[in-house]
Deep mutational scan, measured.
Amino acid sequence: WIARINAAVRAYGLNYSTFINGLKKAGIELDRKILADMAVRDPQAFEQVVNKVKEALQV
């Protein structure tokens, strides 16, 4: 799951650890299995999560 998430978030200019930190700051409580599945099956929803994380990180 970690490898999938890392590959997906790198397309948005983040790395895995920064993304996970941003999830916590944004108050998003999705587990890694769901995030990895979302990255593959629903990229639009995953992009929305990434955008919320970037807002929380102020990137």
Rank of each mutant, 00 (worst) to 15 (best):
A45V: 07
N6P: 01
Q44W: 15
L14C: 03
Y16V: 04
A39N: 04
D37M: 11
A11W: 04
G13P: 00
D31H: 14
A36I: 09
K24N: 08
S17K: 15
A39G: 04
R41L: 14
V53W: 01
A45T: 11
R10F: 10
V9S: 02
L35W: 04
D37R: 13
W1E: 15
N6W: 04
A39W: 07
I5K: 00
I34E: 11
R4A: 13
D37Q: 10
P43S: 04
Q58G: 10
A8S: 04
T18N: 08
V49H: 04
L35I: 14
I28G: 05
V59K: 08
A26N: 04
V53A: 13
Q44P: 12
N51R: 09
V9G: 01
K52M: 11
L23I: 12
A45L: 10
A39P: 07
Q44R: 11
G13W: 02
L57D: 04
K33P: 11
I5G: 00
Y16E: 02
E29A: 14
A39D: 04
L57A: 07
K52P: 01
E47H: 06
K54V: 11
I2V: 07
K54H: 06
A11V: 11
P43Y: 05
F46D: 00
N15C: 08
V40D: 15
S17M: 11
K24L: 13
D31C: 09
E55N: 12
I2C: 04
I5Q: 00
A3T: 05
T18F: 03
V9R: 00
N21E: 12
A36R: 03
M38R: 02
N21F: 14
D42G: 03
Y16W: 03
V9K: 00
E29T: 14
L23D: 00
I5W: 01
D31S: 13
Y16I: 03
V40H: 13
I34V: 07
W1N: 14
G22D: 01
Y16M: 01
L30Y: 10
L57Q: 05
A3N: 08
R10E: 10
A36F: 13
T18Q: 11
A39C: 04
A7Q: 15
A39Y: 04
M38T: 05
R10G: 10
A36D: 03
K24I: 12
R10N: 08
A11I: 14
D42Y: 06
I34A: 08
Q58H: 07
K33S: 13
V50K: 01
K33W: 13
N21D: 06
R32L: 15
L35F: 06
T18R: 13
Y12C: 02
R10W: 05
R4I: 15
A7E: 15
V59G: 09
Q48C: 09
K52A: 09
A8K: 04
G27W: 05
V49P: 00
V49Q: 03
E55M: 11
V40Q: 10
I2A: 03
F19Y: 02
G22V: 02
N21L: 14
Q58P: 10
I20W: 10
P43C: 05
V9M: 04
L23C: 05
N51M: 13
V59Y: 13
K52D: 09
K54Q: 12
Q58R: 14
L57V: 08
F19H: 00
N21I: 13
G13A: 05
I2H: 02
E55T: 09
Q48H: 14
I2Q: 04
A8C: 03
E47P: 01
I20P: 00
S17A: 08
K54I: 12
A56N: 07
Y16D: 02
A8I: 03
I34Q: 06
E47S: 09
A8H: 04
E29N: 14
R32V: 15
A36N: 02
Y12M: 03
D42P: 02
L23S: 02
L30C: 13
R4C: 12
E47Q: 09
V59I: 09
D37A: 05
A39H: 04
R10D: 05
A36C: 05
A7H: 10
V50G: 01
I2W: 15
A8P: 00
E47C: 05
A3E: 12
N51Q: 08
A11C: 05
L57W: 06
G27R: 09
L57Y: 07
L35S: 01
V53F: 01
N21Y: 12
R4S: 11
L23P: 00
Q44L: 11
M38A: 03
G22R: 02
N51E: 10
V50T: 04
A26M: 07
N6E: 15
N51Y: 15
N15P: 04
L57G: 05
V49G: 01
V40P: 02
L57H: 05
Q58M: 07
G13C: 06
A7P: 01
Q44A: 13
V53G: 01
L30H: 05
Y16F: 05
R4M: 15
L14G: 01
G13V: 01
N21R: 14
V9W: 01
R41Y: 14
T18L: 12
G27Y: 06
F19M: 03
V40M: 09
K33E: 15
V50Q: 01
K54G: 03
L30T: 14
A3D: 07
R10L: 09
A8Q: 03
A56C: 06
I20L: 06
Y16A: 09
I28A: 05
Q58F: 12
L30G: 07
I20M: 15
M38N: 02
V9Y: 01
E47T: 06
V50E: 01
R10T: 14
Q44C: 08
K33V: 07
K25L: 10
V49Y: 09
G13T: 01
K24A: 08
S17T: 06
L30K: 07
I28P: 02
R4D: 13
Q58N: 10
A7V: 08
L23G: 02
E55D: 12
N6S: 15
G22F: 03
K24F: 12
F46Y: 01
I20H: 04
R32H: 14
S17E: 10
N15L: 05
V40E: 15
E29R: 14
K24P: 04
R10S: 12
K52V: 09
T18S: 11
K54A: 05
I2N: 02
K24C: 10
V49F: 05
T18A: 09
A26K: 03
N15R: 06
I20C: 11
I5P: 00
W1I: 15
R10K: 14
A3G: 08
M38K: 04
V49M: 09
I20S: 10
V49T: 07
K33L: 07
A11L: 11
G22Q: 02
L30A: 09
G13H: 05
I2G: 01
A11M: 13
D42W: 09
A11P: 15
A26V: 09
S17H: 10
G27K: 12
Y12R: 04
V40K: 12
A11S: 07
K25W: 12
K33D: 06
A7N: 12
A36M: 08
K54R: 11
A26T: 13
A56S: 08
I2L: 06
R4H: 05
V50L: 03
K24Q: 10
D31V: 11
V40F: 13
G22E: 02
D31E: 12
A8F: 02
N6R: 10
L23Q: 02
E29K: 14
D37L: 08
S17L: 12
K25S: 09
F19P: 00
Y12W: 06
D37F: 13
V50P: 00
V9A: 09
L57M: 11
D31T: 14
K25E: 07
V53E: 00
A11D: 07
V50N: 00
K54C: 04
Y16R: 01
I34L: 11
R41V: 13
A11H: 09
V9L: 13
A7G: 04
P43L: 06
N15H: 08
Q58E: 11
A3F: 02
E29M: 14
S17G: 05
A56P: 02
E29Y: 15
A45K: 12
A7I: 11
K25D: 06
G27V: 05
N6Q: 09
A26G: 07
K33Q: 11
R32Q: 15
A36G: 06
A56Q: 08
S17C: 15
N21S: 13
I2S: 00
I5C: 01
A45H: 08
A7S: 07
A11F: 06
Q44M: 12
A8W: 04
V49E: 02
E55F: 09
Y16C: 04
D37S: 06
G22W: 03
N51I: 14
L14E: 01
